[in-house]
Amino acid sequence: MTLADTVSLPSSRPRPRRRPQRRSQWKGFLYIAPAMALVIVFFILPVLFTFWMSLHRWPLLGGTRFIGLGNYIRMASDSRFYAALGFTAYYTVIITIAIFALAFPLAMFVERQRRMVGVYRTAIFMPVVVGLASASLLWVWFANVDSGFLNPLLAWLGIVDLKTNFFASFDSAFFVICLMVVWKVAGFTMIILLTGLQAIPTELGEAARIDGANRWKRFIYVTLPLMRKTMALSLILSVTGSILAFDQFYIMTAGGPQNKMISVVYYIFNQSFVSFNLGYGAAMSLALLVILVLISIFQLWLLRVGEDRP
């Protein structure tokens, strides 16, 4: 036996191309192509066009003029824009806390199997299917000083003695708006939290109960840690929806009383379609988009702190 027989020399033939792998890659690209096209057409291109508008003095009627960063310089010194940001932040904090304070107990209530639990879930979720504009008009009628039922209800509870015009002062109007939004949105947040509660294995709660943990400790050390991702989703949706609030302030109070209820989106709407300054409205829209992205990143980071701890 020769050395050539015992040592196999590398073959000089070319390796076959990996056509099946490339073909599968092209198939994967074709599968995601429709979603990519939708993202490009309905998000990336509008954002790019909005940025282009923000660099111009762009009236609703008439010619445009390139002004560079002029709209952004104006926005940096606009006190009304900062006032709208401050009110929106105040509203977001109040409404997010109120929604979670109601939605989480409701989710835990309907999570347990009990009699008529399906009816409870349906009744709580029903306001979600009502449009926000319709809900705003409905609550304007509810809070009407003459024909609404809110005044008789508060009088029956002993809270007020005389008929109250709820939209005459900031505090009462803000209370009615928050009440309407919680009534409208809490059911949706409850459904999201309910899915997270149902995904928790029952064996974990039973093991903690056998180890001597009471209901409160099981909630703190078992339920809440396993609800991080679900809470992150519901929190991001709640905060984003609150920052983008417009319909309820436009319909219920028209920004009043004394223009104290003008949210950021309401102010952008006024500048764009009332003052006919689309370029300045585009600049504020991009600034609001950046704020939303930063807030969402911060929320995700905050809810992931300590997630990998043993």
Rank of each mutant, 00 (worst) to 15 (best):
R114M: 13
G63P: 01
I268Q: 04
Q299Y: 08
I236N: 05
W156G: 05
E307C: 12
K27Q: 05
S169Q: 15
F298E: 14
K184N: 06
I291E: 03
L302P: 05
T189P: 07
K184Q: 05
G70I: 00
P20F: 07
I99D: 06
G131D: 06
A101Q: 03
D5T: 11
E111W: 13
N144C: 04
V93K: 01
I44H: 00
L106Y: 02
L150T: 01
L224G: 04
G118S: 12
I200M: 07
Q258T: 14
F174K: 08
L61F: 12
L3A: 09
Y267A: 05
I44T: 00
T230K: 00
T230Q: 06
P20C: 01
G28E: 11
P225G: 08
I262A: 08
K163N: 15
M231R: 10
K260P: 05
M190P: 00
W141R: 08
V185H: 07
S24W: 13
A83L: 06
G212Q: 07
F269H: 07
Q21P: 04
L137Y: 08
Y221D: 10
F29M: 13
R57F: 14
F43H: 02
G63I: 02
Y31T: 15
P225M: 05
F51R: 10
V290G: 01
F298H: 15
K260S: 14
V222K: 02
W183S: 12
A173M: 11
V222G: 03
Y280D: 03
L303G: 07
L303R: 02
Y31A: 15
L60W: 11
L226K: 08
P310T: 13
K217P: 11
M108F: 11
G28F: 10
D247P: 00
R74H: 07
A35C: 04
S54C: 06
L179D: 06
R112W: 11
R22T: 11
V265P: 05
V265G: 00
F109I: 04
T195H: 13
A133K: 13
S77M: 12
M36D: 00
E203G: 15
G187C: 09
S285N: 09
L226D: 10
A89K: 07
W52M: 02
V222D: 01
L204H: 06
R114I: 11
V181T: 10
F246V: 07
F87H: 03
Q25Y: 15
Y82T: 09
P20I: 02
F49I: 01
L244V: 05
V145P: 12
K229Q: 09
A207D: 05
W301C: 12
Q198G: 15
